[in-house]
Amino acid sequence: MLNNKIALITGVGTGIGLATAKRYLKEGAKVIGVGDYNKEFDDLGANFEYFKCDVTDEKNIVELKEHISKKYGVLDILLTICDKEYRGKMSEVDADTINQASKHILTAPILLSKNLKDLLAKSTLASVIFDFPISAFMVDKNYLESIYNLALADYVRQATAQFRPIRVNGVMFGLIKNHFLAKEDEERFAKAEKKETMIPSQRLGTCEDVANLNNFLADELSKFFNSALIPVDGGYYTTNPRSMGNSF
């Protein structure tokens, strides 16, 4: 249970972020949501608060921090997920796309954790969780996202060292039915005769599958988890011989 814990979730307007917000609320937490507006927010009840914030702009983040500090005085859970996608071939990339990917995938979690560290330190058992696709470990797959997501994976261990005793973990999601899921992967799975040869769990994942793990990592039950990168992918990347993700 997350009774009265204060959680900040970025990317809250899309699949996994929204599913996680719902789950945290169900577990008794108060949730501050940042990201694109979604009309479902209206039904989330009094323990949910939407805060408009550009998470790539440090001034905005400082305002967010001041708001949380004033209203709650503490932050127990910081969960980030990038709600933008950066696809396309290397031959078509331009500097602006590179900058945007860097900002949204990497700058945002780094600046958020930097600025919110003191509020997290006031929690009895703070938990920082970075969600990112485990396709980051696959060559030729959304290469630009992968570059920055791999850097984020490394940031998990770097942050663990510097944020002691705040625990920092990563959730690596596989082929989940959300905005990250590429059409060709969805079609390939639909056409696969033996589903288990592609995904051992024989199904695509759901946003709730990821929210379940996000909940476990926010909960005291996982208090010895630190600096861990945990896959939730039905075995797709973790058993794939072509994926560096198979070392998890």
Binding site: P200, D209, N212, L213, F216, A228, P231, V232, D233
Partner: peptide
């Protein structure tokens, strides 16, 4: 809760 966690090693 963990029905999509499969084929991995969790440390």
């Amino acid at each position: 809760e963990a029905s999509y966690i499969n084929g991995c090693d969790i440390s």
